[in-house]
């Protein structure tokens, strides 16, 4: 299967596409927390690393099947997300941001000093189990899940909390409970993404999961348009591919990357697809079509 795949798509493009898919899963999780529920978190990379290390250690040292370890890694990340969420989600806005930033650093330092994670030397010899097929499959699964969530009672409750928490409470929504659920699901997706990440790179190092990575993922979501699922996907794709496609300008690469960020924020302050409602767009087009035909 893999050989057939590499005869169709160059392994380099496969690698980059897988990275895009993996980041999309993580970004969808963050979009649920920050975009939909309005809770600012700067520690998403920590949950990515929890999932990555858990899955990697399970397949490497305990020889568990890949998909099972992937799910267990996701659950581990969700568990830590909920444990962190219970005390921390009482905070709002910037304060929550700082608290999650701190948690991210704790996780990084903990992994640096643990024996089982290989410490500062890193964890090597992880089997390469991620391929374009299982990554794509999980991306589709994740997209379907978050689309269904967004348009459910749960999703509407999250939006209500984002817009006005007090009003939402007055309407009988248990804001704390919903926030923790959203945090748990978001972290689960991050954990899954981390598991794929570990089995793509085959090597993990705690320093790779610093706050820069958290900001990178936040960038994907904000640039695509906070709260927009298509926006998150487009934002992640553009920002992950840009450094690769900008290789031809060599040392100016990161400068142009930065310039792209600035330009996008000037012209589209709400993100690439922020504020675009696809359902409404489709409905309007349909209405136009029916009006024309009649």
């Amino acid at each position: 299967m893999e050989q057939w795949l590499s005869s169709v798509i160059d392994p380099y493009y496969q690698q980059v596409l897988m990275l895009v898919g993996i980041y999309i899963i993580a970004a969808l999780g963050l979009n649920l927390i920050t975009g939909l529920c309005g809770q600012l978190t700067f520690g998403h990379a920590a949950f990515l690393s929890i999932g990555a290390y858990t899955a990697a250690i399970l397949t490497r040292d305990f020889h568990l099947p890949f998909i099972l370890s992937l799910v267990l890694g996701g659950l581990m990340a969700a568990l830590f997300g909920i444990l962190l969420g219970i005390p921390v989600l009482r905070l709002t806005g910037d304060y929550l941001g700082i608290a999650t930033l701190g948690f991210g650093e704790i996780v990084r330092v903990a992994f640096t000093n643990m024996k089982i994670t290989g410490g500062a030397i890193g964890l090597a010899a992880i089997p390469r189990a991620s391929n374009l097929i299982n990554v794509t499959f999980f991306v589709i699964l994740a997209v379907a899940a978050v689309v269904l969530l967004e348009n459910s009672r749960f999703g509407r409750a999250l939006k209500a909390i984002r817009e006005d928490e007090i009003a939402a409470e007055a309407m009988g929504i248990n804001a704390m409970w919903y926030k923790i659920q959203a945090f748990g699901i978001g972290c689960f997706l991050a954990g899954i993404s981390g598991g794929f990440y570990a089995h793509l790179l085959q090597y993990l190092n705690p320093n790779d999961f610093g706050f820069l990575k958290s900001f990178e993922i936040l960038n994907f979501v904000v640039l695509g348009g906070l709260g927009s699922i298509p926006g998150t996907i487009v934002g992640t794709t553009v920002l992950t591919l840009a450094p690769e496609f900008l290789r031809f300008v060599q040392e100016y690469r990161m400068m142009i990357y930065g310039l792209l960020l600035v330009l996008m924020m000037i012209f589209r302050p709400h993100g690439l697809l922020g504020g675009v409602n696809f359902r409404r767009l489709l409905r309007r087009r349909k209405q136009k079509a029916t009006a024309l035909s009649s």
Binding site: P11, D208, P243, R247, R253, M254
Partner: peptide, 20 residues
């Protein structure tokens, strides 16, 4: 090929050098 000191990009760079 520059990988910008990033682990994820380093993997892409190696793959690019080999296959492209």
């Amino acid at each position: 090929s520059d990988h910008g000191s990033k682990l994820s990009e380093a993997a892409s760079v190696v793959q690019k050098l080999i296959s492209k």
